[in-house]
Write a protein that binds this DNA or RNA. Structure first.
Lengths: 117, 117
DNA sequence: CCAACGGTTTGACGCTCGTCAAACAATAGA
DNA sequence: TCTATTGTTTGACGAGCGTCAAACCGTTGG
């Protein structure tokens, strides 16, 4: 059995400008919202609600997020489990993640917001 | 005499993903640090400490920041005065700007940090 | 009126990005 | 041992970005 972490930057090496660049994309900011629960998630576009995108495209976004230091990916068997690096990000940039997730919830993404009706 | 504001998005129209995209660039995140004092600033690259960049390049970055809703530009005579839209950003995304500026100060940009010596 | 100033706009260049498709790799299950 | 599953990698394509240079525009000051 294999059980290893895919390469990712050390906490101290995470750069703000790269984090912002990584999140300055509609798909990846949406992924951040999905990962906000702190749980592990599969990479399958169907599971993530990203059926509109090819699996290789999703894989690409995963890599960008991981290399920016935002997510951590664990490989187990033929599955990969992606999780938010909440503690590391909080240590590196205190308060940033919380305000980002808060802003996301306040609807700053231009997504379709169904009326409260 | 002319004295008008260049076009910019209304506070409610500011989109998080566009803000992050705008700030996910080394030059523009540096500009954010300059504007952090809340004062008005000229566009002259020499005044901004951006001598390495052509004035048209700086002008381009100004436009990106303004159209993302991050800055406000006032035209007076042949000068333009750029200022951070702190109140608008705080209203739209509470806490985001503060944590961004804090993260910037914590050195997450990969900039050269002179030793404390 | 005319020249200098502060910025913007346009066009060009190379590079990066987001996306898909196809091939590939590794594991799990029958 | 096949075959299906899960995801990565590579290559291609069009679009967008960051930069510079040159032309342009409105304003200021002789």
């Amino acid at each position: 059995m294999s059980e290893e972490l895919l390469p990712q930057p050390d906490t101290g090496e995470i750069q703000l400008v790269k984090v912002l660049h990584a999140l300055g994309d509609p798909v990846r900011i949406q992924l951040l919202g999905i990962y906000a629960d702190g749980e592990e998630h599969s990479c399958d576009p169907r599971v993530l609600g990203l059926e509109r995108l090819h699996k290789s495209t999703v894989s690409h976004h995963m890599r960008v997020l991981r290399e920016a230091g935002i997510t951590s990916t664990r490989a187990a068997g033929r599955n990969r489990y992606v999780r938010l690096r909440r503690a590391d990000l909080d240590a590196r940039f205190p308060g940033l993640l919380d305000s980002l997730l808060g802003s996301l919830a306040s609807g700053g993404t231009g997504e379709d917001v169904p009326p409260a009706a």
